[in-house]
Nucleic acid binder design. Structure first.
Lengths: 368, 368
DNA sequence: TTGTACGCGTTATCAT
DNA sequence: ATGATAACGCGTACAA
């Protein structure tokens, strides 16, 4: 009964294959649901009474076809609502106009902004983007990368990858192109660009500023010890202290996870351990907000008693009270740049690896 | 010279096709870079001295193959690091284990959280997710959906789609399954589930609470007029006022874009127009933060002079000072639920459309 | 300018 | 249990 009722609405196309008459229904079943049949190049060719090659040439804007026939074919294709199967095309061309975007967590505004910028540029160039969350989980990252490879992506952007150098390399060698964000490459590869924030310099600038403001007891809430950018910021912090003849002590450094919650706990611990601290450099803005809350709890006025400087300038940084002084980088632009670099590698291969470094700028609000 | 140097490192595989001897290099060039050759099923079959069908059966865990041979093939496949081409498989099976996630803006924490939840579940079920940003641009949304269709996705989640009902329907009929978030469907379809927040009820609850707190002049900063959820919240707001015998006036409603900036401007305009307002219902938390800033500017104490209630409970809501009282919904869980619903539609088709409604709960912090 | 034959890597069908 | 062959929808190479 069901079948009958549905069948009535079907269009029937009759065409010849190998001398046989084939009757094909316009729609087919998928589970209990009816999916509109996909129009193929053969359908268009039949309707336009030309060969599939002419349709192919017309659709892809290739040479070697009469302008009239091209327009006629295009018109018919549009009428039939024909959309070429990228998957069939990919099988033969080995290009899928599909890219991978791999990051620890899209819910983290830092990465969300990057994703936004990257997707915008990808869209503008007719590429689709696979979103992968690794959740900082190494196994998950590896499995996800394999799945991308199985889908024949043309390239990928890896953000803050946890993979070892050799794991990264073995992934990259199966890919036409890739961009590494927040990660460096030991062995330069002409198919791989790297894009890093100059965290070290940023931290030094922050220390300079704090010293100029008369701060003498500058502490740091660092990120996870595995985080490359945290290591670089710690470096800059130490160097900054040295430059100004300030003593460095491990007591002044507290690690935490890159969350507000964890930042708050770390700051609380730090402030109890070193009550004389008058400035705190935070791993990033999320952590800085945690520090802000800790100060509030400890009845420390910001910036009077304690100055706070964050990093990244996520939107949240401009919304706290007091507003967060932070090391600004344009994250959406960063995402765009990463995608530009990737597309460039894919479409106009260079001879040497590109190394992009982004310089953060101190954005002074109220917290320092 | 270059070619020569590289050629030395290549593995050479010789096999027979149609009686011809074919020599194929282990790697090939893509631009100037060398991509490791993809191992195919034929390679594995040759290495294991079986037919491709046996390899297929072994890899897919199908019946009809000797346990010993299966294990032998699997071992060889692993040694060769063989990964089946999902794209070739998709061409024949019409299933790509690929889904679409369409939203206005991943950089908006509301959607970022949903994306996070959805990706987690998709990953757990071995699906890959295409991320699409529409930027609230109708043309872009349509083009992006077409590109997804061309890539043969198995299904999609559409968040806050701007498409007309007929446009949505014509998209859906080409898809095996879909989930609509923040959007309803006129015509029930067994391949489509809808997932909506009960915004109307949420707004009513908020009004109830404000009235119970003694507020008498409750205004609303609504979202864009095209936003369905804004319309629903406005509905609840009006009904709530009526229930308590409070007068409704268009003067008390101000529309804005769903950003903090725009919310701030709208609140400023509203407060100048109606200085006696003692409570504001905001379209969402982003807007509510804008309202908070406007109050700060106008020297109005929150919640003493003015109470503010937001919506969605994005992470930011818990970080402002004062903390934002808001209509809480678990956004990550929402994303998970949407993805569960989609996978269910794909793998276990139901007979009737599923309509999921999420009930927000008032989360009282300090702003009201 | 247009068309034919074939292959991309896999699964389905039907033999054996 | 295993294999040969034909699709899937398209582009490339070459022929007409």
């Amino acid at each position: 009964m069901l079948t009958l009722a549905l069948t009535l609405a079907l269009t029937v196309i009759i065409y010849h294959i190998d001398g046989l008459v084939n009757i094909q229904f316009g729609d087919y079943f998928e589970g209990f649901a009816m999916v509109k049949k996909r129009i193929t190049m053969a359908d268009v060719a039949a309707a336009a009474d030309v060969s599939m090659m002419s349709v192919s040439r017309a659709m892809n804007g290739r040479e070697g076809i009469n302008q009239e026939t091209r327009e006629r074919i295009l018109k018919i294709a549009a009428e039939l609502d024909y959309h070429p199967s990228q998957i069939a095309r990919g099988l033969v061309t080995r290009r899928t106009t599909t890219l991978g975007l791999v990051m620890p967590d899209v819910a983290n505004p830092f990465f969300a902004q990057i994703a936004r910028g990257a997707e915008d540029v990808a869209y503008a160039h007719d590429y689709n983007l696979f979103l992968i969350n690794t959740a900082e989980n190494l196994e998950r990252e590896k499995r996800a990368l394999d799945s991308l490879l199985e889908k024949d992506i043309d390239g990928a952007i890896l953000c803050s990858s946890r993979l070892s150098q050799s794991e990264i390399l073995s992934f990259l060698e199966k890919l036409p192109a890739a961009v590494l964000v927040n990660r460096e490459l030991d062995l330069p590869d002409m198919r791989v660009a790297t894009l890093n924030v100059n965290d070290c310099s940023g931290a030094m600038i922050a220390v300079d500023y704090l010293v100029a403001q008369g701060r003498k007891n500058i502490a740091m809430i660092a990120g996870p010890q595995t985080s490359i950018s945290s290591q670089r910021r710690l470096d800059g912090y130490q160097t900054g202290l040295q430059t100004h003849g300030l003593p460095f002590s491990l007591e002044l450094v507290q690690n935490c996870f890159p969350t507000t919650q964890s930042g708050e706990e770390a700051a609380l611990a730090l402030l109890k351990r070193c009550p004389t601290v008058d400035a705190i450099l935070a791993f990033n803005d999320l952590v800085a907000v945690g520090v802000l809350r800790a100060c509030l709890q400890m009845q420390k006025k910001v910036p009077q008693d304690i100055a706070i400087i964050g990093a990244d300038d996520i939107p949240l940084a401009g919304l706290t009270n007091p507003g967060l002084t932070t090391l600004h980088i344009d994250l959406i632009a960063l995402g765009e740049q990463a995608m530009f670099a990737l597309l460039h590698l894919i479409n106009a291969p260079t001879e040497s690896a590109k190394t992009i470094v982004i310089q953060p700028e101190l954005l002074i609000r109220e917290s320092a």
